[in-house]
Amino acid sequence: MKRPFEYIIEKLVLLSGIASIVFVVLIFAFLLKEGLSLFANESVFAFLFGRNWYPISDPPQFGILPLILGSLLVTFGAIVIAVPLGLAAAIYVAEIAPLWLRDILKSGIELLAAIPSIVLGFIGIVTLAPFLKTIFNLPSGLTALAGSIMLAFMAMPTIVSIIEDSIVSVPKNYKEGSLALGATRWQTIYRVTLPAASSGILAAIMLGIGRVVGETMAVLMITGNAAVMPVSFLQPVRTLTATIAAEMGEAVGGSGHYYALFAIGIVLFVISFIINLLADMFLHRGRGRKRR
């Protein structure tokens, strides 16, 4: 009686495996179909590099350059904040913290990942935005900088745990070799351990970027949502994701506006895809080298 049972299980597992691919393909096909409809009346160039996003004026203008730059600015800021902090935290957790503290810190970092992004956005609105408003003397604290800071918190858990993993997986005999030559602990970390873990560190940064680019709710709440060309961190901006979230509800199905939002989805999809691909490449480069 075992044979048919094995057969059924085998096929079920196969089916689940195929399903995940099918769903991705279907989603992408749908996204393409809806998004590409925009380019019947609109040039790709005007869409990607147009400086004005006026989707409901007459005639509508669908230039997403301010949105792309908004996303880039907020992401760049978040990474500049999150990477040094994350790297330092990961080094501390992996190499320096005593065992009992290590466990507490690791669960703390995981807990940070468990906070829903809307809650972070909410806290950002009531605490961070007023704070930035006061210290920089701004008309509003809802700015790109506020978004970057909140997103840095969101990217931190990913960055810290991946870097920490890659530091821990550096062979112990590298460290011993360095210490046996009279190197101090810090010299060992920055001359041997970090270079040995570099592929994991790059992957962590890419995945952190991926997390930040795709984040929507907190960004929608805290960046001020002005679709203008960003020139400074201290002004309101709007990101690609926030635009879709804010406008999908009011866009009329089948209108140019509706298709434009799908086209933004394609742009996001391509960005995430490239980032994930890069992260994967870095991770595999690291593994390949270790196996040798």
């Binding site: 062979p171 005999n173 070799g177 360095s178 046996a180 030559l181 009279g182 190197a183 001359r191 041997v192």
Partner: peptide, 29 residues
């Protein structure tokens, strides 16, 4: 002490750096 008393390990453990950087590692630190 460790400068004066060096150690070779059971499994060869060159650092994942260039040959040159491996040799000068001790001098650099």
């Amino acid at each position: 002490l460790r400068k004066k008393v060096g150690m070779v390990f059971q499994r060869p453990n060159p650092f994942p750096l260039t040959i040159y950087e491996n040799v000068v590692y001790g001098l650099r630190i």
